[in-house]
Structures are given as structure tokens and as C-alpha cells.
Amino acid sequence: MRTQNGLRLGWIVGISFLFALNGCKKGTDPLPANENELITTVTLRFTQAGTANTQTATYQDKDGDGGAAPTKFDTITLTANTSYSLTVDLLDESKTPTVSVTDEVNSKKDEHLLVYATTPAALLTYTYGDKDSRNLPVGITGTIRTGTAGTGTFNVRLRHQPPINGTAVKDGSPTPGSDDVNLNFGLTIK
């Protein structure tokens, strides 16, 4: 009897071991999550309506978050009561050659939303100029109308809003997803 119980125990241990090995096979791990973009440089181009006058404001941190401090973080200076077109250029300069994250956002518009907020809000208004396949805003292009003179901040956020379990989550608001970038540019309207 003792031998029979020992044999049964051996079989149970052996089969359990095989199941454990089978569960750890390579290639059966779940796919990695849809990761955020690394953005080291953000350039905002403000072109005054009816002119070729373009002003740029750039944020640059070539090693990404952490590590060294940003090497460039411009202040935006615009004219009061004036319209501008705004285009955004996003780069990942941690790679060689540099990767255009703008191209990535444009190819996956259904998963990205640039959100602009001004404090105080009266300094300017932003209107989206581009849409995704579901007619929701993207924000790579748009227009700005400045208000009266003053100072504040211009917040630029790129929200990464990939589908969850195959269901789209982007709804035109900044709520779903996570930040690829979140920057507060100093803003002067004069």
C-alpha cells in the first residue's frame, strides 16, 4: 500500500510539473500594452493670418523625462486680438535617425488627441483643424484667436487613447488614455 501511495504521489507531482512547464512556454505571453510615445521635442508654429510671419516655440529634452533638464523651453509671445494658424511638430530625438512622432500621430489619429488649455482662458481660444476617421478632433493643426494683452500659460497635452480590448475609447475629450506629453509654455499676449 505504501508503495502504491508513493507511486500515485510521484505521478501527481510529475503531471503537475508538466502542466507548469507547459504554462511557461515562450510565445504564449500576452502582447505588450500599447505604449506611450517618447517625445523629446515639441515645436509649435504660429503663423499670423494673412501673412508669412511665423513664430516658433520649442520644448526640447533629448534624453526624455528624468536625467538631464530640458535644454530648451521657449515662451510663446503673440499679438493681441490676432488670428494664427497653429501646427505642431513632435519628435523623438533619442533615436538615430530622429523619429517623427507627428507622422505616428497622423497615422493613428483615432488613438491620439492634442489638448490645449490656456490659463487664464481669456488669453486665447483654440479651434481644431483636423479630425480622425470618426470625425473627432486630433490637434496637429488648428487656429488660434488671441484676446487682450496679458500673461499666463499655454498647456499642450498629447493624450494617447488606444482601443481597450478592441473597443475605441477616444471620445473627443481628454479623459480616456494617458499623457504622451504634458507641457506648460509661458504665454505672453501683447
Rank of each mutant, 00 (worst) to 15 (best):
V138Q: 05
P70Q: 08
P32V: 11
G6I: 08
D92A: 06
D132K: 03
T188W: 04
T153R: 10
A117H: 07
P162T: 12
G6M: 08
V181R: 03
S83I: 06
T175S: 08
Q48S: 13
N155R: 14
L18E: 09
S83E: 11
G64R: 07
I12N: 05
A117Y: 05
A49G: 06
F17N: 02
G166D: 10
T77D: 07
S94L: 04
K190T: 12
V42Q: 05
Y128D: 05
T98Q: 06
D74L: 02
I12G: 02
V105W: 03
E35G: 14
G50H: 09
A57D: 05
D61I: 01
L31K: 11
V138F: 05
G66S: 09
K131N: 10
V101Q: 01
G23V: 02
Q55T: 13
E37C: 00
L113W: 05
T96E: 10
R145A: 13
D130K: 06
G50K: 11
K95C: 01
L183G: 01
P162A: 13
S16T: 10
F185T: 02
L183A: 00
Y128E: 03
K109P: 00
V138K: 01
V105T: 03
K95N: 06
D61Y: 04
R2M: 08
N106R: 10
D180T: 08
Y116R: 01
D65H: 12
V115A: 03
K72T: 07
L124C: 07
G64W: 04
A149M: 08
R159S: 06
W11C: 13
T75Y: 09
N36Q: 14
N5L: 15
N81Y: 02
Q55A: 11
G64F: 06
T146H: 03
A57K: 02
D29K: 14
A121P: 00
S133N: 15
D63N: 09
P174Y: 00
R2N: 12
I15M: 14
G139E: 06
E37Q: 15
G50I: 08
T47W: 07
R134A: 10
G67M: 07
G14F: 12
S178M: 14
Y59T: 00
P32Y: 12
A122Q: 15
F46Y: 11
S173T: 12
Q55K: 14
S178G: 14
L91A: 09
H112R: 11
Q161F: 11
F46D: 03
D180R: 02
A49N: 13
T118H: 04
R134P: 00
A52N: 14
N53T: 15
K131G: 05
M1L: 07
G186E: 12
G152Y: 15
D61W: 02
E111S: 10
D180A: 11
T119K: 15
V169S: 04
T82H: 02
A68R: 08
